[in-house]
Amino acid sequence: MKLALQRCCGTSIYLKQYESSTDAVLKALGVEIVDIKQFSCCGYPLKNFRYRAYLLSSARNLALAEKEHLNIMTMCNCCYGSLKHADQIMKDHPSERKEINIVLNREGLEYAGGVTVRHVLDILFTEIGIEGIRKKIRKELGGLKIATHYGCHLLRPRQVAQFDNPAAPAKFDDLVEVTGAKSISWPEKLECCGSPLWGINDELSLDLTERKILDAKRSGADFLCVACPFCQLQFDRVQRILHSRRGTKETLPSILYTQLIGLALGIDGKTLGIDKNEIDSTGILRYLS
């Protein structure tokens, strides 16, 4: 299986461990990824500022992938939501498609609607399958309690995301549990991590993040687990800022799903960058058996 990987802009410097762990896990599971050098930002940051600039960015990446006859896989919920939404607009609205394609034509590109956008969790769950993954598990993370955080744009809006039941999702939990860990139930599970307001309204953003962290901790979690760079940066880097700004004592480290499954697949912690997370996550190695 071969896919074009949309790397999120935020990962290249702030979250290198997401890139290295994703590369390693996909290799171990036999998914071939292609890096299209000309890929642009998905446009998500401009969705509420210049909608057309957003649409253009996403459509451009779709066109580039189409040219290579590849589907796109994202490792970010916001890229996923943006690309998927743009794909639908391009497919359902001939007039918008025409206008966008006029601009894309200037660099010899055109999007005809032949690409499917997938999230890395979707590839793992649907294409490799829980049983497929289980066969490759080398080590179990028994006794580990995980607060699984889906992230908004993987589930909502349902017409766009189409990953799982947005009210009662289970796929990510299954993916977590295949490692031997337990995905706990926690009341704030489906809420936003707070990152969209980070940098705009920091106090509110911290309130929302703190609320989730405390809830997960009270529900017995040892770790948060996410599959989106924005969520991870919020739960990791911003949690550290939360501690320093508010003197919060309660700490709950967050781990990327590709790091978690990577450990279970027997990939070494260094490649997965377990030590690169800002909130010390190396404690997870104790659960490996």
Binding site: G10, Y14, Y44, P45, L46, N48, F49, S195, P196, W198, G199, I200, D202, S205, F230, L233, R237, V238, I241, S244
Partner: peptide, 17 residues
Amino acid sequence: EALLLSPLSFYRGLRRE
């Protein structure tokens, strides 16, 4: 600067320290 109200501010926030 209107763009301060867009998610591009996320990165500015990451460097607030």
